[in-house]
Computed example of a mutant assay.
Amino acid sequence: MDWFAPIDLYCERADIGLWAEPINALSNLAFPLAAIWAWHSAGRFGQRRTIVAILCLLAGLIGVGSGLFHTFANRWSEYADVIPIWSFVALYVLSAIALVGGAPAGKVARIGVISAAITTVIVLATSGDGEAHSHEADPLNGSLQYAPALLALVVFSAITLWRGHAIRGWAVAATGVFALSLGFRIMDLHLCAVWPMGTHFMWHVLNALMVGLLLQGLIRCSPARDGVA
């Protein structure tokens, strides 16, 4: 594997230069902001647990990894992009079960680390070749990989609505924002001719908002319990 093979996937990138996607790269600042917002709320609501700290850290790392990918645009930076994303997804699902559903958070955190490791291995094993893509070759612009995440959010929202859980508003809002962000990701290459900078930066901004909403829901709607990680 060539770790430095250039990857050209987005409308804004017109060459293989280091700073060829400034808007896509800088829009990732939204993720650390979402993490800071969440950590501030965790302090307000007495939820500065280990599991919440890890989730906030991963949220910030999503922005760092994606920023690296849209700056260097090669194989190693692609992994820096996708690994924090799927690690966050794996751990958040288990955290929601623990902190919202009432399962022991310490035990779920350990399971979450294992799940994140397994997810990382799967991502490494299934990642595609580093080459330029086009909307003719893939009308969804590689977005089909996020279908499981959208399905998980829809199911999560449905369950919280069915149970009347306090987190339901946050879950539904996060699901709607993620569906909208997927639309911007899909349309990126389709609009190059009329909008050269593309729409992928909105995928970052809206995903950061989605992450922020999920974290806020988890933090604000979890019962305060002493002695739990």
Results as ranks from 00 to 15, higher is better:
D2N: 15
F4Q: 14
I7Y: 02
D8W: 02
L9S: 05
Y10H: 09
C11S: 15
C11Q: 03
R13E: 03
A14F: 04
D15N: 14
I16S: 15
G17M: 07
S27Q: 07
A30L: 12
P32S: 09
P32E: 14
A34N: 13
W39L: 15
H40G: 01
G43N: 11
G46R: 09
Q47C: 06
R49G: 02
R49M: 09
I51P: 00
L55T: 04
L58V: 06
G60H: 04
G60T: 10
L61G: 08
G63M: 10
G65F: 06
S66A: 12
G67C: 13
A73V: 00
A73F: 01
R75Y: 06
R75G: 07
E78L: 12
Y79E: 12
A80F: 13
A80S: 13
D81Q: 08
I83L: 15
S87P: 02
V89F: 09
V89N: 13
I97N: 08
L99T: 06
L99V: 02
A103M: 14
P104Q: 08
P104A: 08
G106K: 10
V108K: 13
R110I: 02
I111W: 13
A116I: 07
I118H: 03
T120Y: 00
T120W: 04
I122F: 06
I122M: 10
V123R: 14
L124K: 03
T126M: 08
G128L: 04
G128F: 09
E131S: 13
A132I: 04
E136N: 08
D138Y: 12
L140G: 05
L140I: 13
N141W: 03
Q145P: 00
P148K: 05
L151D: 08
A152Y: 04
V155S: 05
S157F: 03
T160I: 02
W162M: 12
G164V: 01
A166C: 01
I167S: 11
W170F: 15
A171T: 07
A171G: 11
V172T: 12
A174P: 10
G176I: 00
V177Y: 01
V177S: 10
F178A: 11
G183R: 04
G183V: 07
F184A: 12
R185M: 10
I186L: 04
L189S: 05
C192D: 00
C192R: 15
P196K: 06
M197Y: 09
T199N: 04
H200W: 04
M202D: 01
W203E: 03
N207Y: 03
M210T: 14
M210L: 00
V211I: 15
V211K: 05
L213Q: 06
L214G: 11
L215Y: 08
Q216G: 02
I219F: 01
S222E: 03
S222P: 12
A224Y: 07
R225M: 09
D226V: 10
G227R: 06
A229Y: 10
